[in-house]
Design a protein around this nucleic acid. Structure first.
Lengths: 333, 333
DNA sequence: TTGAAAGCGCTAACAG
DNA sequence: CTGTTAGCGCTTTCAA
């Protein structure tokens, strides 16, 4: 919009047809070097910038991708988005951002419109999609990659970590330290990956002949703070706890300390994600290290391949990224 | 792309011209109700979704806006973006996300291309723009709003808070509590708003006849942690400190506590922004409450007005949002 | 290696 | 209130 200069102006001034100008932009090798240089010069001279919209209409490729996230308030989502943005930039794709707030209403036309015609592919980090919404999304013909969770029926490529194993291993560590009453801190809502984390936790606990203790708190941090306080005033404190998120682990840990317990001596705490939060708490939080940035970067890269049909043959990709652990002050040794 | 159904298909099936279909979509009142309903029905029946790209080309309005941010790793930026996304959605604008990493290189063509033809307006939250870049941005003819900072020459509409006053008032509070050696914690880089905060701090300190003490630490949190530790081992601890960011305040506070000091008795700490971090630290962090979400929401709203030329007459808008303070455990009383 | 010409799917005068 | 007709700025055959 900003530039009134069109491909015609360039063509005229360079004394070639607009087809040639188009070629130097899209298939430079198919234009004689001399002509190409002349055109390039005029382009620079005139400050010509191709109109991406016209290009999109003519070529039926927008070089835009759509990113659907539930919110940006969660550090993990933001970090993923950083990874996506970097790789998208590298491959010259622009990113359409769509924040859904996990609304389950039918009123999802916001992202549907986006998909309708403006994007060549979709990255989906919304972690509370209903089956119905997922179905609608799959009906779209644009390639899609799921970030940090997977379709229950594995119909869609996804990039994630093995949450069940991660939770299993973290719980195992807590068991090996001699803890008997190990709690799992989660939320009521069925986010995509939490059930997996819970399953890993349950498996480890039951294998050890212990009793699972799943505690549910508010999703919203501010609200959960009061619940943690209430918990330590009225319930028996566990020996250890594994939380689905760092922020929840920290809220729980702070409440434990406020109630007079000592971390990690009286109670050990482990979080999930390794956000910046983990380094800010006292003691610093032990946590599952999720390669969040990489999940974003890898899925964007995968999407570029799908958009170019580079791996059309591979029907069902599921990229499992490695996880690790950061053992810090909130656990013993 | 996903839908092969065009406006022609709808027109044919509804037995009207494509112009009429276009009208029911864009100027419903200018179509007889009966016709309108018939068209609407066919649209639904066929599952027709207008192609936004074609629409953009024909109308020369994309209903897209561009959002330029330095990173999403900073909680304040993410929260702003949430506000932007919500209002954009409300006004049916799509958001192009561009993460710059504050690179000062010439290679800024990523956002330049975005602006070239795909957006009707720009929201700029990049807080380290050089004069040259700013100039280039101003050369673009799309309306632009700055978020959380302002153009030094006030040429561009901006939505922000009065950082200088906020810092002044926070410092004043620290002075009134009897502190003499009050430090200001900042970073080396010249982000747009930090000099303002510093100016407010300096003003308050000098007014009270005290000596300013500006301390600079690494921008990256992980790096700064070591520097804080080093500081308390080798330098004289101040009586109080005001930081440019919550995360910095917390890192500094933790280091103070680790060094044997008691907060707030030995040293009072105040942050800036009121992110979730502030509630996670022990003691909880007193901080300047910046209406981050609102800054995003209000600027998006302002941009819609500018894009509709609703306030063309108002040449230089500067929306100053109110700030407040959250006095918590890291300060006395 | 280059040019001519036909659209991409829609909006926006202009008639009627 | 509705239809006709030009484009929007570019890509992409098809010929030359």
């Amino acid at each position: 919009m900003s530039n009134k200069i069109t491909i015609y102006d360039v063509a005229r001034k360079a004394d070639v047809s607009l087809a040639t100008v188009s070629r130097v932009l899209n298939n430079p090798t198919r234009v004689k070097e001399k002509t190409r240089n002349r055109v390039l010069e005029v382009i620079k001279e005139l400050g010509y910038r191709p109109n991406a919209i016209a290009r999109g209409l003519a070529s039926r490729r927008s070089t835009n991708i759509g990113l659907i996230v539930p919110t940006l308030s969660r550090a993990s989502i933001s970090e993923m988005t950083n990874g996506i943005a970097d790789i998208a930039d590298k491959y010259r794709y622009s990113v359409f951002l769509n924040v859904t707030h996990n609304e389950r209403e039918l009123q999802t036309d916001s992202w549907e419109n986006m998909i309708a015609s403006q994007v060549d592919g979709v990255l989906l980090a919304s972690d509370q999609m209903g089956e119905d919404q997922m179905d609608r999304l799959l009906n779209e013909t644009v390639p899609t990659v799921l970030l940090g969770f997977k379709d229950s029926q594995s119909r869609v490529p996804a990039v994630l970590i093995d949450y069940a194993s991660a939770a299993y291993e973290a719980t195992k560590k807590l068991i090996d330290s001699g803890n008997k009453d190990i709690a799992f801190l989660t939320v009521e809502e069925k986010f995509e990956t939490n059930p997996e984390k819970e399953a890993g936790y349950i498996k480890a606990v039951e294998e050890a002949g212990l009793t699972p203790r799943v505690l549910k708190f508010a999703d919203k941090f501010e609200t959960s703070i009061g619940e943690f306080k209430h918990f330590f005033e009225h319930e028996k404190a566990p020996d250890a706890a594994l939380a689905i998120r760092d922020s929840m682990a920290i809220g729980f840990m702070n409440a434990a300390i406020d109630s007079g317990l000592s971390v990690p001596d009286d109670i050990e705490i482990v979080g999930f994600q390794n956000t910046q939060y983990a380094l800010m708490s006292r003691p610093q939080l032990s946590t599952v290290m999720v390669p969040t940035y990489d999940i974003g970067a890898v899925s964007m890269r995968l999407l570029t391949k799908l958009m170019n049909k580079e791996e059309e043959e591979v029907e069902e990709q599921e990229v499992m990224l490695p996880h690790a652990f950061a053992w810090r002050g909130s656990t013993k040794n």
